[in-house]
Amino acid sequence: MNTGSQLIKNNFRVEKLPHIWCPGCGHGILMRAVTEAIENLNLDKKKVCIVSGIGCSSRAPGYMDFNTLHTTHGRALAFATGIKLAKPELKVIVITGDGDCTAIGGNHLIHAARRNIDITTIVFNNNIYGMTGGQYSPTTPKNEFGTTAPFGNIDKAFDVCKLADGAGATYVARGTAYHVKQLIKLVEKGINNKGFSLIDAISICPTYYGRKNKKGLAVDMMNYLKDNAVDVKAVKKFQKEILEDKFVIGEFKNTTEPEYTDEYNKILEKVKHLHK
């Protein structure tokens, strides 16, 4: 029985494939990209722990052959914080959606970033609540549509990267389901960053976001990513007006700050001497 490429056989619970995402959904591309990043870094699979919340994105860990945890809506980062602090040797990766991470999970996002705990968070950002059938989310662009924004979304969307940067994340980047090679590199650098890393991975949702907003088929949505993404390194070359309706991808922030579990280990050391 043919069970996929070497990458898939090595890293997936193949008997659980094919996954549940719709035809043309970008999440499968992102999940593979995350897996390829893990493979490229040849991490010890026994020590990789993937945590997710609730939503389309968050079904990913079930398919991935690691220590996997599918938690409650919005709470992946809080669960992951407990895992990382309790066992820092684990490489903790959070896979979450735009709604899961920035709506109900917003409080946990800004605090995990503020702590700069060594967790790599990949937001499968498809600008919609897919699992519940197409409601608009905190990243749905203004004036666009969702089943709960039948007259156009009046909310202003988050820039997830700026949000994470402002809260204290030390690695922040954005990739897309089209620019897969770049995304793999961004995830690798995020995993290698000893601190809180956030990668905003723009996905496509033809079934709801695409249909509701007349973005065409999966192929058209992929071409949109291809034609409207501008790499942060190239931004200066573009006049302002052109950038108006483009979006910027690439690495935005890569700094080093004290990492939470390292700081806690210093306390453990300090306390040990107290009790000699």
Binding site: S5, Q6, H19, H27, Y178, M222
Partner: peptide, 18 residues
């Protein structure tokens, strides 16, 4: 194709091992 297939249904592989 392999990079962008959401369902891992197409890929490049060495005939026997890899």
């Amino acid at each position: 194709c392999e990079l962008r297939c959401p369902d891992y249904a197409i890929y490049l592989e060495g005939d026997s091992n890899e």
